[in-house]
Every structure is written in C-alpha cells, then in structure tokens.
Simulated assay, not measured.
Amino acid sequence: MNWDWEKLQEKRQRQSGGGQGPGPGWGPGGPNIDPIGDSLKKLRGFKFPAGKLIVGLVFLLWLASGVFIVEPDEVGIVLRFGQYDRTVEAGPHYHLPFPIENVYKPKITEIRRVEVGFRSIERGSSFQQGSLRSVKEESLMLTGDENIVDVQFIVQYQIKDPVEYLFNVTQQGWTVKSAAEAAMREIIGHNVIDNALTKGKTQIQSDCRDLLQVILDRYGAGVRVVAVQMQDVHPPKEVIDAFKDVASAREDRSRIINEAEAYRNELLPKARGNAAQIVNQAQAYKETVVKNAEGEANRFLAVLQEYNKAKDITKKRLYLEAMEEILGNSEVEKLIMPEKGLSQVVPYLPLDKLKTKKGGE
C-alpha cells in the first residue's frame, strides 16, 4: 500500500491558508518537526511482502515434491537430468525435485502376461471366461513335417533387471510377444504335428521358454520368463475333421497295442515260471539219480572190499540181510513149510488170492 505524500501536503496547506492560524507543526520560528509527517514519509516507499511469501511457499512445495515412497513390490529408479543415477529399495526416499531428478517405480514382483494367437475380450475390469478372439496371423504355424497347426499360447514374465527393462527396449510387452511368437515358430518347426497335438506339448513349452529367455537376454530386455502355456492347439478348421479321424485311428491303434502288451506281459511270466519249474525239477531229478547211483556204487565197492577180506562170512551176511528184507516185508505173503514136507507135497501157489489182489488194485 502506497501513501500519496503530495496530496497529503496540499491538503495540509489548504487547511493552514484558511485564516485559522498556523497549524500544528508551525512555531514562532518557522515550521517545526512534524512527527506524523515523518512517519508517513517513512511509509511512502513501503510494499506489503505478499509476493515474497508466495515465492517462498512455492519454493518449499518444490523442495517437498522430491519426497517419494517405494512400495514393497516396487523398486525406485532415480534419473538425474534424464540419466540413470541410482536404485533405491522399498521405503520413503528423497530425490532432487523435477527437472533435476525424477523417479520410476516399476513393480518387480508382478507377473505380467502376453497372449499370442488370441486376445481375451475384456468386460469391465475382468476377462470373461471363454470370450476369445483368434488372431490367425500369429497362431498359424508350420510344423517340421510340413503341416499347418493353429497354436494359441500365453507367456508369463516378470522384471528381472529394472534398469534394463526401462531403458534398453521400448514397448516391453510388444517386444516379449514378438520374441515369443518367433521362439514358438522355431520350436514348432522342429517338431512333427503329432507332438504339437498330443504327447509333446510339455516338451514344446519347456523348449520355447528356454529359447525365449535366450532371445530376451540377447536383447538386454531385463525380463525373466516364468512360463509358456499352450492354451489351444488344433489343426485349421478346414481339415479338423480329417485330423479327428486320424487321431481316433491312432487311439484305437494305441489301445490294441496296449491290450496286446498286457496279454504278453501276463503270458510271458507264467511261461517263464513254468519253464523254470520244469528245469528245476529236472535238475533235482538228475541230482537225485546221480547221487543214488554214486551211493549204490560206493556201497557196492564197500561190500566188495569186505567180501574180498572174508568171502564166506560176507556171503552169509548178505544172504541173511536179503532174507530179512524179504521176510520182513508185510506185503509179501509167506508160506512156511518144513523141509521134509516139501518132498511129499506138491508146491502150492495161491493163484486165486493173487488174482483177487490184482483185480482190487
């Protein structure tokens, strides 16, 4: 607020020239010192400091704009004049205000995904199950046996090196999708269509993930590939019926082969067991016969040795042992007759009993 000093002086002169005598501040010796006038004179060049206050507040706000917080799933990348300066971990931090320094905070734990060969139709904030739009220029691929197959798959990845991820490549999602499509085409080109449609999917996914990681590392993309998942693999619609017939024939062939192998696996062990049993029985019989023959031969040699030592005694002993064995057999019917009776009686054989015995057997 400025004071108009000249207008104030004119007003005082008009008041003093009106015949009312000298006004205040005028003494007998001339004008005296006017304390009020001196105070107003000091306030003549004074300005209220509102502009400086506003500038100070703006400066404080500018300094405070450098405060930032890094969340637990993030990492802070600080740039100074557009060039990488440092990396900060989770928590509160400070950087020099813009335009000196600025900060990026990528989420390093978030699992990102790209879709190749199809697009999910988004409804609101979620993807509707089963609502897919096929992208033929991405999904149609050529196999190693020169067949066309429609491959739709998903790539899941996360940030491995945030500095490389932010500054080495642009449009990171598009880069991952393009590299994934190239890797899948190469892997499919080294496999036959049967592997892609049936038993080889797991190996194809693993090989594609490894090759994609090599490509992205070569680009310096700062990305780690978590998984490659094949969503739908089928022949083109024009020939899908023929492929279904072929697949059914292969399933029938596999079923018949499995049944034949099951029958073979059931029959061969039994045959091997029976053969081993027969061989073991023959071996046991051979060992028994050989051992018995050896025993009889040794017994005969022992008897012969004793016989040579005492022939009469040995003969009598052998005779008695033979008679003891015969007479001691309960199955043999014996007729005991005196020596005198043998000369007077016709020898008798019980033929009727023998016949009855044989008939009973």
Score class of each variant (00 low, 15 high):
Thr356Lys: 15
Ile154Asp: 00
Tyr84His: 15
Asp85Met: 07
Gly56Ala: 11
Asn195Phe: 03
Glu164Phe: 05
Asp161Leu: 02
Pro347Tyr: 10
Ala90Gln: 04
Gln231Lys: 13
Pro235Cys: 03
Arg250Leu: 10
Lys286Arg: 15
Pro72Ile: 03
Val239Trp: 00
Asp241Trp: 02
Leu53Gln: 08
Ala64Leu: 15
Asp145Ile: 00
Leu8Met: 05
Gln305Val: 08
Ile100Asn: 02
Asn191Ala: 08
Gln20Glu: 09
Ile159Phe: 05
Lys52Leu: 07
Leu8His: 01
Phe167His: 09
Val135Gln: 05
Gly66Ser: 08
Asp4Lys: 01
Asp4Met: 00
Ser134Phe: 09
Trp5Glu: 10
Lys315Ser: 12
Ile204Ala: 00
Ser254Cys: 06
Asp232Lys: 10
Gly29Val: 04
Ile111Tyr: 03
Arg250His: 10
Val155Phe: 02
Gly360Ser: 14
His190Thr: 11
Leu60Thr: 09
Gly130Tyr: 05
Phe98Ser: 04
Gln156Met: 11
Leu79Arg: 09
Tyr157Phe: 15
Glu261Met: 13
Ala276Trp: 11
His95Val: 06
Arg14Thr: 05
Ala247Glu: 14
Trp62Asp: 05
Glu74Arg: 03
Glu137Pro: 03
Val58Ser: 07
Met230Asp: 02
Leu268Thr: 15
Gly200Pro: 00
Gln172His: 06
Gln15Cys: 06
Val163Tyr: 01
Glu110Met: 05
Asn298Gly: 11
Glu89Pro: 10
Asp85Thr: 04
Ser65Asn: 03
Val228Glu: 00
Gly295Met: 13
Gln344Lys: 14
Val103Gly: 03
Trp174Thr: 11
Gln171Ser: 06
Ala275Lys: 14
Thr87Arg: 09
Val163Lys: 12
Arg12Phe: 04
Gln129Phe: 05
Ala196Asp: 04
Gly173Pro: 04
Glu181Ser: 15
Asp145Val: 01
